[in-house]
Design a protein around this nucleic acid. Structure first.
Lengths: 215, 215
DNA sequence: TTCGATTAAAGAAAATATTCATTATTATTT
DNA sequence: AAATAATAATGAATATTTTCTTTAATCGAA
């Protein structure tokens, strides 16, 4: 038995949540085409997914569609952005300013989706004291002194061998959500959400599907 | 009904594939600790997952474990890396040298996992002709002239509104696997594999789980 | 107004993935 | 040498997710 007994009662299924930003992107394109309404049928056809999956996914939000008409584009965009937490701007600390951390600092898209990196931490003297894209880099020991309660999100981009320790440091410092880019499975109490996003895991799936593997 | 009738007979389940790089990372740490064997029980306990899930996932590879002993660390690392396509170095083109594309060019970790970006394409005169991290940026029209059959992977980091068109261009140019970082669902024939990796989708899941959403 | 077509929504069924239970194997201990 | 405990592997049961089916609503046309 897994030691995490996450009771998922009433939780929105993760597959549904992951699809929602796709609907959002689709709707924004529809808005640019001046469409006022879109039906699940059309969304499904254009995106190549099942129509009932669209309605089911959207039913987790507060929006209701009109029979024979569909959903109001503007309203649905607003509801989805709100539902996904993209309207509220969260401050975040980045842990590990190596190449992947650096990479994320270069991506301004995050701001549009509700995440603003306000500081980075590392242990390498070569980067400490510098700034990347306007984000200052401190020694990780400075983190404990900061204790900014407005920063609840931490981005974990340290080398694998330090991942668990740094995650514990983050949790101890009041971080409530860890966006984990390492392939390490972080083990923490239930009060901290860990979201795994290993780019290499996706790469592995792509390679496999491309038939790089003999069988 | 979805128009894609992907017959998944015999395919390794995607959840399993996504977990494999985590096992690999764990094994590499075990190797550094000079462990010669690891059992699924130990892997499971350390990673906080179900032990039978570990054996089931590993059973998709060719490795067999020894009763009462476990799996040989070195052998399992090799088998996994090979199985996941991380040993064979694939060349890739990057489409869209904006902030996210830029970000990926800064990440050297990809090389270690079998992917080498050899050129980037964009339409912005400000970046064309420049190089980022040693990768030259060309106008996208140059892509068609290149036709390098050794490059089968394309990374899609263009703005959403161009995603589908650029993807078609990629497919026409011989790209067999598209690593799609846009939130747009790409529609192409069955001969091209599309792997979606929307960072913002993961962000959405994290925000939701953090309770940013009222209910 | 009446009919037909389109749609959202909700529930049932099917497919998929995870967890549980069992068996056989083999190091280690007695 | 026998007993014990730890383990991989396999198949069964459970849980989850997706797809299918049905129903009710309503817009537009006849």
């Amino acid at each position: 038995m897994s030691s995490e007994n996450k009771k998922k009662e009433g939780l929105v299924p993760e597959p549904s949540l992951r699809r929602m930003p796709c609907y959002l992107a689709y709707l924004k394109l529809a808005k640019r085409r001046n469409q006022e309404f879109v039906s699940s049928t059309h969304i499904a056809r254009d995106m190549g997914v099942d129509p009932t999956q669209v309605t089911k996914d959207l039913s987790y939000t507060s929006i209701v569609g009109k029979t024979r008409v569909g959903y109001e584009v503007n309203a649905l965009i607003e509801v989805l952005e709100d539902f996904l937490g993209f309207t509220k701007l969260d401050k975040a600390y980045l842990f590990g300013a190596g190449s992947l951390g650096n990479a994320l600092l270069h991506d301004h898209g995050l701001d549009q989706y509700g995440l603003k990196i306000v500081a980075a931490f590392d242990v390498d003297p070569k980067v400490i004291g510098r700034s990347i894209e306007g984000v200052p880099i401190f020694h990780v020991s400075e983190f404990e002194k900061m204790k900014d309660e407005n920063v609840q999100v931490g981005i974990l981009t340290v080398p694998a061998e330090f991942a668990q320790d740094v995650a514990q440091l983050m949790a101890a410092g009041g971080i409530k959500g860890i966006w984990n880019f390492t392939p390490i499975r972080i083990r923490l109490g239930d009060d901290v959400v860990v979201q795994d996003t290993s780019l290499y895991a996706h790469l592995a799936v792509m390679f496999n599907r491309m038939g790089h593997v003999k069988k």
